[in-house]
């Protein structure tokens, strides 16, 4: 097989192609003006979906039924508590990050202990936890909007060598996730569990430990994304995570990760996140209203999954 053909066999290539086509269409309409601005905005906004999506991807890889619905609530809680703790002081940035990570760990632990102890499906366990976490966020927030420390606000909204800083953070996290998934025994374990849990157990894989770590990882990534998003948008809002529930799942699926579990890939998350943002901005450029934009987004998700599903069926 030639290298080009092999490239087209990769599950993530389609999301990249789609993202590129949409980018091209938008740029042609605006006649090349604002190409740099569009690319930077796409990288910035995609970065948040990438961080959240990678966590969700690890969970979905664990197999059918595994999904984390507590992502939006975790983002909101981490954002509000961290900003409250930092209280606009630059010296408190590090404790703020630590608190966000601790919140992620606690939420992840709650998620998995419910799944394990009560033997309830992950979708319900994470849903119940998300209700509690959401309440905690409402309780701590109290409608106050605390500004992020100036250093952090500058960091999240500026660029290094023309690349948005949040995109660089997302890139570092992606490389780490890719390494975990492809080069470590842990990555092999989650794929094995996703393909068949009984078989993985027979093979002596520590199934419970692996699943626990995966849920912890997903929640921590969600809280980090919430922390960054709150700093980027100049304060935490109670509804700031809500769009990331559907987004995190959509990004994973469009990126070519098998929904049935056991097969995942990191580059696809990038392609899909960029694609999702670029679609919105393309429809904006064409001057379409919010309603049409939502409908188009939905139709695109469905057509992508129909194409991808057909492709996979053909290969096997």
């Amino acid at each position: 097989m030639s290298p080009v053909l092999r490239l087209f066999g990769k599950p993530w290539i389609w999301s990249w192609l789609a993202a590129f086509v949409v980018w091209f269409l938008t740029v042609t309409v605006s006649l090349g003006g604002g190409t740099l601005g569009l690319s930077q905005a796409a990288l910035t906004f995609a970065a948040f979906s990438i961080i959240v999506g990678i966590g969700q991807m690890f969970v979905i890889t664990l197999g059918p039924g595994n999904i984390d619905l507590s992502v939006p609530a975790t983002m909101t809680l981490a954002g509000t508590v961290a900003l409250k703790l930092m209280n606009v002081e630059n010296g408190m940035i590090l404790p703020g990050v630590l608190v966000a990570i601790v919140i992620g760990l606690v939420v992840g632990l709650c998620n998995y202990s419910l799944i394990k102890a009560l033997r309830i499906p992950p979708i319900i366990a994470t849903l119940s936890v998300s209700f509690i976490v959401q309440s905690a966020a409402i309780w701590t927030n109290r409608g106050l909007r605390i500004k992020p420390p100036s250093l952090l606000a500058d960091f999240t909204t500026s660029n290094t060598f023309g690349i948005p800083n949040v995109a660089i953070v997302a890139l570092l996290i992606s490389i780490f996730a890719w390494f975990l998934l492809e080069k470590t025994i842990y990555g092999r374990w989650i794929s094995a569990i996703g393909q068949s849990m009984p078989a993985a157990r027979m093979a002596g894989i520590p199934v419970d430990g692996t699943r626990l770590v995966t849920y912890l990882f997903c929640a921590v990534l969600a809280s980090v994304a919430g922390y960054l998003l709150a700093c980027f948008s100049g304060g935490a809002a109670l509804n700031m995570g809500s769009e990331y529930l559907l987004m995190s799942i959509a990004v994973v699926v469009i990126g070519g990760t098998a929904v049935a579990g056991g097969d995942s890939n990191v580059p696809g998350i990038w392609g899909a996140s960029l694609f999702m943002f670029l679609v919105v901005s393309m429809l904006n450029t064409y001057g379409l209203g919010a309603g049409i934009r939502l409908i188009m987004t939905g139709l695109i998700i469905i057509s992508v999954i129909m194409l991808a599903g057909g492709r996979r069926a053909g290969m096997r």
Partner: peptide
């Protein structure tokens, strides 16, 4: 995934 996509359509 399909109903997720449809949720955008109905919302729109």
């Amino acid at each position: 995934v399909v109903t997720l996509g449809m949720s955008f359509v109905w919302g729109g």
